[in-house]
């Protein structure tokens, strides 16, 4: 049995027939080709699959696709504005915050939510924002450096409507 799921991804409408057990991550990656969100654990522990649903970060690997009916989903691919990287994306690059890059999309999405809600975060705020995003390469230090640098950027808010 399939149901029609209608929602938006990065501002563009999407209509997909999905089964009741399909996850948002399955639909984004395997059906719609948004492979920015990564499959790292499928139990909601590692955070590599983090996306925003109506501005709130969720683990798309443990979110049933049909629960986002009518909602706005933003993935890491949707954070750029006018062809320019989101300040967090630029700051990750500038500060060496990614190594293998597998956790990076989830990290950036979690931090984008933080900057929307808290324009002047301290380092501990940034740590708490990524507490559910695992990284095995960087030791997190440069990720937090990048978050602080992005927080100083005038264009830190935004993302597609």
């Amino acid at each position: 049995m399939k149901y029609m799921l209608s929602f938006t991804v990065n501002g563009a409408p999407a209509d997909v027939a999905v089964g009741p057990t399909e996850t948002l991550l399955d639909v984004l990656r395997d059906r719609l080709g948004f492979t920015g969100a990564k499959r790292g654990c499928e139990t909601g522990d590692c955070g590599a699959c983090t996306v925003l649903v109506d501005g709130r970060s969720v683990r798309s690997c443990i979110t049933l696709a049909l629960t986002v009916q009518g909602k706005a989903v933003t993935t890491v691919e949707g954070l750029a504005r006018d062809g320019k990287p989101h300040p967090l994306q630029q700051a990750f690059h500038d500060h060496g915050a990614s190594q293998c890059g597998f956790c990076t999309p989830g990290m950036i999405v979690s931090l984008a939510e933080l900057l929307e809600k808290n324009p002047e975060p301290c380092r501990d705020d940034a740590r708490a924002a990524i507490a559910g995003n695992l990284c095995r390469c960087t030791g997190y230090v440069k990720i937090i450096d990048a978050a602080m640098a992005a927080a100083r950027s005038p264009h830190k808010k935004g993302g597609p409507a």
Binding site: R39, F92, H93, G101
Partner: peptide, 17 residues
């Protein structure tokens, strides 16, 4: 800066899966 680092941050890097 990391070679390909902006691709990592943009979610453009293509891993096997």
């Amino acid at each position: 800066k990391r070679y390909g680092g902006l691709d990592h941050a943009a979610g453009r890097t293509q891993f096997v899966d």
